[in-house]
Nucleic acid binder design. Sequence first.
DNA 1: CCGATAATTGATCGATCGATAAATAACGAT
DNA 2: ATCGTTATTTATCGATCGATCAATTATCGG
Lengths: 221, 221
Amino acid sequence: MKQRSKAGHRTPIREQQRLDPSEREAIIAREAVTFFAEYGFEGQTRELAKRLHITQPLLYRYFPSKEALIERVYQDVFVERWKPSWEKIITDRSVPLKARLVRFYREYAAVILTYEWIRLFMFAGLKDLGLNARYLKMLRERAFEKVIEEIRVEYGRPSTGELPVTDLEIEMVWGLHAAIFYLGVRQFIYSMPLETDVNSIIDAKIATFLNGFRSVLPAKG
Amino acid sequence: MKQRSKAGHRTPIREQQRLDPSEREAIIAREAVTFFAEYGFEGQTRELAKRLHITQPLLYRYFPSKEALIERVYQDVFVERWKPSWEKIITDRSVPLKARLVRFYREYAAVILTYEWIRLFMFAGLKDLGLNARYLKMLRERAFEKVIEEIRVEYGRPSTGELPVTDLEIEMVWGLHAAIFYLGVRQFIYSMPLETDVNSIIDAKIATFLNGFRSVLPAKG
DNA sequence: CCGATAATTGATCGATCGATAAATAACGAT
DNA sequence: ATCGTTATTTATCGATCGATCAATTATCGG
């Protein structure tokens, strides 16, 4: 009782049937991102195949196992979406510090405050795997510590090379990160629409962040 | 190949066997909390039974379905652990405002910053169900709006009865809540131990929160 | 138009899940 | 002691899961 074409005869309607392997693989990976973001990693491969209008065994021609497909999702979302240019934005001292932070956090927020990113990151964390710890370690090294260094320089304090980042300083940065991340949690996990513009909130948070940071800065060297 | 008693003969060791239904039910519910917090709601009933040293069908004598058991977990964690005294703490004007907030948020944090609470709340959110939205609606009415009202009074502004809570004000409270909640996420979802004392962080957050709140207060009435 | 290649499907396996019913055995009352 | 109640276990069902393999058919070069 198939209905490949409407009236039994061949229809001119283009129903793409056989695709190039590379194209099919990309389509599967793309759909897997939104699928696992919605249902979690226990989402069934049959359901994913249904969304793709293909049969479930076809998935296994392109990915050796469900776990391999999930790894691909991790790669596409958490690795590929990281912009190396962010690190340049933070350290570009031809731009005023506050403007740099605003630009970085706005761009970063635009990437992570999506249905896929937030939910997949949370699903991964609850499943453990250490993926989150690895990602946040990178985030700390490539972004957070640079932010602290730039603030130190701005206020004429010793470099993080001389005096390592303090617990209080890193905690301040975590607090800012928490505020932004939580906007995504409210939207995409709690299903509570935000009543205020995200960029406005970010700007305000950065302002109070910079203000509060002065009280945790190490003494002048 | 059972080993009910060590050497085949009846041992004097007290191996509680038959329990009062009320007691057994309580034990099951208690273990279900930590079990589902660890594995999520897709955790298998057979695994839960193994932890309880009982057989899986016994669970169905006390709970008609797995879903009913999960509902019980929600009740025990998100409803039973709410302390009505918190609302009194916030509104007790014989105590200075800042001291009230510190006390409330410390006590509240002590309840929600646990492995069970944080993870179950997140699992529930990802599964939807509307539980989170319901809980946060209650949190907003019973706590957040009271906090705002007290700050309004402190600074001689119109009551929330006259002038409803503004988006900016509620956003400030969300920010404070986010900072505290995220401490739990870091610990119990990302498995990243905190390097700073929680109460110290809360105190600091409240200080900057109160400071920042003045800039979003409505004009004097 | 034809034949080879391979993308896709149909059929199915083995394990695992929530749930049910009947059998067993622990405990209190008499 | 023994008898009835019922907490608990044993056995099992039906559905569903990830995964495998052989059959099918769309597509392209000649």
